[in-house]
Structure formats: structure tokens, C-alpha cells
Design a protein around this nucleic acid. Structure first.
Lengths: 194, 194
DNA sequence: TTGTTTTTTTGACAAATGTCAAGCGTAAAA
DNA sequence: TTTTACGCTTGACATTTGTCAAAAAAACAA
């Protein structure tokens, strides 16, 4: 950027500041720490088995996170939509190799920040701890909702729940991704849709 | 407590300080904010529909958290074992009525702290933000593991996974609680166990 | 202890979902 | 355009899991 702020970083800052205004000094630390990357459909952000010591934010595009079942089948663990944060949580938290692959399913722009820089900001500016706290709690609620869905709904109900929860995804991702996300087979999903 | 620290609060503090030593001032704020309660099998800590503005810690005993399916059936959303934190996450985070009932399945002793006091400590002592952050992240990893289990395992595999993940629970909770936790029926679980 | 209630197991059967294979349609590649 | 590859649908059938009812076992209370 010759002069002025990278618009993608600007966008991320605005997204954080929906609930709280960040002090100028925090913003400056963030701006210095964030990297912006443009990615194309099919690109891989994090490969299973590699280290994921970054936290990401999706500016625009669409991302899928998946892992492999014992028999080799891919299982979608989540979809990431615009303005959402993502990472391999387990790898990021425990400093272990990623158990998942993060892949681009529509051309995307992502921001990333290294774990050490992220923690450095929190340490220096506790308000950023608060912000982080809010986001991870929101994520916990989402995870609990998904457990409820998987625990107690039939295949048909799962699909209806998916349409209601992720209305923007239904015509953007292939059915096999949705099927494994819901814990059902492609054929069952195909039949349900009629 | 006539003099000296309540041993249950002492126990909670030690449990927190496995990874980090809390400053004396934080400990004192905690000690003032924590309430200790003894509960008996069958008691209800939080009833579905009521407000849950507390964070809990289980000193000893065993707790089950469940919700009701549309048809009225109870579905176990989690078991809480000794030295674990618990609450109704959604209610606690969003300040909405609890979607779950928290019930005692073995005589228990719990510590509780009100959300406002909890946040007051974090605000005054950012190190406590860090501690909280750690626990929430650990919880996120557990939730993701459960999603994986529900998404991609058969009934038999789910049961084996349960035995491996919660070895201490297998002979302490009734099968119907485990069955709904795994998203299968009592009869199926009963047959699998043979 | 005895009697009562609740939980677990079992059987017969029904329904849902999975598997495998083939065909169709669409979109990308040559 | 033609060809190829991939994703989606469909059918026939297998398997798993669910449902309902009853019996057995275990837990609890009198």
C-alpha cells in the first residue's frame, strides 16, 4: 500500500468494531501484524498435518474446512463465510499439527495474524482480550448448536436446519460437502431434496 | 468459615493454578465472589427457561446437562466431572433464558460466581482474562471433538469412543443418559453393549 | 425383608439410511 | 465443438437403527 490503509485490513477492523471501539494503539499494532492474501478456488490455506499458528479472517469468498475419515473420505467440519474468523482450533490452541485441511472453494481474500502477535496485542491491551473472548464464546455457542443438530435430528430435519442456518450456502457449495457436514451420505441428501 | 479458607474454594484455586499462578489480589477477589453449595442427587442447579448468569465449578460429584427434544424426550448435552467448569453457555453469553437443565446425578459440591463479578475480576486483572481464555479454548476443542464423533461414527464406534473418552463415567451414569448423548436410542445402545 | 418403581434387555417388526452400480446432466478442458 | 471429468440422481437391495411391547433385572422405598 503506497499510502493509506489496506482496505481489507480496514474492513477487518470495522468488523471487529461492531461491538467495541478499539483504541488507536491497538489498531496500529493490528495493522502492522496482519497479512492479507488473495486466494483462488482450489487453493489450500492449511494442509492437514502442518502447523497452524495463525488466526484468519475471511474478507470475502468461501472456505471449507475438512478432515479425513479412517477410510479416506473427506468430512466437512465447517464452512467459513464472509466476515468470519477461522483457524484449526485444536492446532492453534495446543500447538499441534493441524487435524484439518482448510481449502478455498470460492476465490477469497483473507487476513491472517500469527499467534504470537495476537497474544502480544492481548497482553499489551487487555481490551483485545475482551474482544477475543467475545468471538470465541460466540463460536462455542455455534458449536453447541451443531452438536444439538447432529444429536437429535433426522436426516431431513438436519437438511432443513442447514437451509435455515446457512441460507447463503445452499446454492454455493456442492452437495457432497453439505452431506458430510450433516453426517449423512450424498445419496440420502439427494433423495431428501426432492 | 470461622477462620481460614473454605477448602472447596481452596481446591478451585489450585485447579486454576495448574497452568498459571494467580496474584494474591485476584485470589482475594475470587474468594469474596465465590459461593459454595452442597447438592444432592436429583437436585436442579439451573432449570430450563430460567436465567443462568453464573459460572460453576464442580468440586466433586457428577452432573448432567440436558435439554428437551420437540417430542419431550430428554437429550443429554453434556456430563460434568470433578474439577470441570460448567454453565449454560448460550444463556451465560447472550443473557437469555437457559435452553438446558443442569441436574445433579451424584451428590455434589459446586462453586459458583456471578457473571458480573467474574467480569469485574477480568477487567481489573487481565491475567484472569488469560485464564478464562484458556479454559474456553479447551472447551472449544472438546466440542469440536464431539462434533467429529457425531458426524462420522457408527453407533458402535460412538460407544467405544465414549468409553475411551469418559472412562470414569461408564459405570456411573444410566444408559439412557449415554444413549441420548451419543444420538442413539436406549435399545440400540443396549444391543451394542453385548 | 417385601413390594414398587425404574431401568435395561429382548424380540419382532418397521423405517430410515447406507451401499453399490448405472445413467444423466452439466461444466470444464482439449 | 467435442471430449472428458465430475457431480448429482436414481434404482435395487443390504444394513443399521428405530419403534413398540413385554419381560427381566436392578434400584429404591416402605
Amino acid at each position: 500500500m503506497p499510502n493509506g490503509l489496506n482496505p481489507h485490513i480496514q474492513h477487518l477492523l470495522e468488523s471487529i468494531q461492531v461491538s467495541i471501539i478499539l483504541p488507536q494503539e491497538v489498531k496500529e499494532m493490528l495493522i502492522k501484524s496482519i497479512e492479507v492474501r488473495e486466494l483462488k478456488k482450489g487453493d489450500i490455506v492449511i494442509e492437514e498435518g502442518t502447523h497452524c499458528n495463525e488466526l484468519f479472517f475471511l474478507n470475502y469468498g468461501l472456505i471449507r474446512i475438512f478432515y479425513y475419515r479412517d477410510n479416506g473420505d473427506e468430512v466437512t467440519s465447517s464452512f467459513v463465510q464472509e466476515n468470519e474468523f477461522f483457524t484449526n482450533v485444536k492446532g492453534f490452541v495446543n500447538e499441534t499439527p493441524s487435524s484439518e485441511t482448510i481449502s478455498i472453494i470460492e476465490n477469497s481474500c483473507i487476513c491472517s495474524i500469527k499467534k504470537e502477535k495476537y497474544f502480544a496485542i492481548m497482553q499489551k491491551h487487555p481490551i483485545f482480550f475482551y474482544v477475543s473472548h467475545q468471538f470465541i464464546n460466540k463460536h462455542r455457542v455455534e458449536l453447541e448448536d451443531r452438536i444439538k443438530m447432529l444429536q437429535s435430528l433426522t436426516a431431513k430435519e438436519k437438511y432443513n436446519n442447514f437451509k435455515a442456518t446457512y441460507p447463503k450456502l445452499i446454492n454455493r457449495v456442492q452437495l457432497s460437502y453439505i452431506a458430510s457436514f450433516l453426517g449423512i451420505t450424498n445419496e440420502t441428501l439427494s433423495r431428501i431434496r426432492k
